[in-house]
Design a protein around this nucleic acid. Structure first.
Lengths: 218, 218
DNA sequence: CCCTAAAATTGAACGTGTTCAAGAAAAGTA
DNA sequence: TACTTTTCTTGAACACGTTCAATTTTAGGG
C-alpha cells in the first residue's frame, strides 16, 4: 500500500516542520508530533529513523525552495555581483521561517555523523544540489570571472554561503537585517577582489592559495 | 566547608574529562561519571548545572593548556609567519587528546545558547582569553603588520583559528596531519597576503573590507 | 472468497539528561 | 555543649529520543 503509506510519511513531515516553525525544535517532541498527527510514536519512527532525519527533511525542503527562488531571481541578474546577491538573498529567504530553529539546526548539521552535515566526506546529494545553485550563478555571469579560478569559484562561494548562514543563525536583529547588510556589503567586495586576480603580485599568491585549496579538498 | 567541596568538584571534573577522552562524549553518561567518582548523580549536578557545563570545563582547560604552550613556543619565533604557526600548532596540540570528542564538542559549542559558544554576544571570558593569545602573537611580531589592519588582525586571525578547528574536527587523517599541513600552507599565504595591503589597487578594497568587518562586529 | 506474506502500526520499555523534595553534614552562634 | 543556618548529598521521579516484540492492516495469488 504505497499511497496511504506515502500520505502518512508526508503527514509526519508536515506536522513536524510546522511544529519546528511554530514552537521550535526542543518543544517539538516525537510524542507531540505523533499526537498531532494522530499516530503512535513508533509509527513516526517507521518513516523517520530519528529526529535528525526530520531535520534532513527540513533541509531538503529549504533547499528546494532556495533552488526555485534562485532560478527565478537569476533571470534578472547578469553580472556576478547581482547574481551572487540574488543567490544569497534567496537562500536567506528560504531559511527565514526557521530562524528561531537555526541554532538547533546548525548544531545537528555540524556533527560529523549527521546525515545533514554539508561537509560530510564524499558529496552528499544535498550539498551537491546546493553547489549547483552557485555553479549556475557563476557560469552564466558576464563578464566572466578570471579563468584561473573559475573552476574553484562555485565551491569557494558556497563556503562563503555557509559562513553567511552561520552569521544568520546568530543574527538576532529584526528580520535578520544585519545578515542582509552583510551580504550587500560583502558581495561587491568579493567581486572586486576577484578582479585583483590579474594583478602581477597577487597572481602568485592566488596560485598558491588555489593549489592549497585543491590539495585540501582532494 | 570549602576545601572538601572543591575536592568533590575537581573530582567530578577530572573523572568527566578523563572519560570524555577515553570513551567519548556519548558514552560518558552523568550516571557513569557519578558512579566512577563514587557520588550520586544529583551531587554532580550540584557542581555542574548540565553536561554542557562539563564541556565548558574542558574548554577552559584546553585553553589554559594552549596559552601555556603558546607562550613557550612564541619565545623562539620572531616573524609573524613563525609566530602564527606556533600559535596554531600549539592550539592543535592542546586539543589533540580530545579529537574523537570534537564533533560533540563543536555541536555543543555552536549552539547560540551554549555557555561555551565562542561567538556569543559580548565577549565571554573564554573567547577573550583565546583572543589574547593571538594579540600577543601579532603585537610582538617583527616586521610589524601593515598599520591600517593591525588593530583588526588578532580578531581576524582568531576567526581563522576557528575555521582551522572546524577543519580539524572533520580531519580523520592519522594524527590529523592534514590539518597540520593546512596550517603550514595557509599561514605563509596569510602573511604574504598581508604585505599586499600596501598595493594601490588592493588598498581601497581592504579599506572597505575593514569598514564592513567593523560595522558587522560593532 | 480465503490464505499467506509483507507492510504498517501500536504501545510498553530502556537508558538518557535533568530536577527536586528530603535528608545528612558542616559551619556558625550562644 | 546545644541550637540554627548554610552547605552538601541523596535517590527517586520526570520527560525525552529511541527500540522492538507483538499486533493489525493491506496486497497478491489461488
Amino acid at each position: 500500500m504505497t499511497v496511504k503509506s506515502e500520505q502518512t510519511r508526508q503527514l509526519v513531515a508536515d506536522v513536524a516542520l510546522r511544529m519546528f516553525r511554530e514552537i521550535g525544535f526542543a518543544k517539538t517532541t516525537m510524542r507531540a508530533i505523533a499526537a498531532e498527527a494522530g499516530i503512535s510514536v513508533g509509527n513516526a519512527y517507521y518513516y523517520f529513523a530519528s529526529k535528525d532525519d526530520l531535520v534532513q527533511e527540513l533541509y531538503l525542503q529549504v533547499q528546494a525552495e532556495h533552488a526555485a527562488r534562485a532560478a527565478e531571481a537569476l533571470k534578472d541578474a547578469a553580472d556576478l555581483t547581482g547574481r551572487l546577491k540574488a543567490t544569497l538573498h534567496t537562500g536567506l529567504d528560504a531559511m527565514a521561517p526557521y530562524h528561531r530553529f537555526g541554532g538547533d539546526f546548525i548544531a545537528t548539521a555540524i556533527r560529523p555523523t549527521s546525515p545533514v552535515n554539508p561537509f560530510a566526506a564524499g558529496s552528499s546529494a544535498a550539498r551537491e544540489a546546493s553547489l549547483t545553485i552557485f555553479r549556475t550563478a557563476v557560469e552564466a555571469a558576464k563578464p566572466l570571472a578570471p579563468k584561473k579560478l573559475r573552476p574553484d569559484l562555485p565551491e569557494l562561494l558556497w563556503l562563503c554561503y555557509m559562513a553567511v548562514t552561520l552569521f544568520w543563525v546568530y543574527d538576532t536583529s529584526e528580520g535578520q537585517q544585519r545578515t542582509r547588510r552583510l551580504v550587500d556589503g560583502a558581495v561587491p567586495l568579493i567581486t572586486r577582489g576577484l578582479s585583483l586576480a590579474r594583478m602581477p603580485g597577487v597572481g602568485r599568491i592566488l596560485d598558491d592559495f588555489l593549489s592549497l585549496s585543491r590539495s585540501i579538498r582532494g
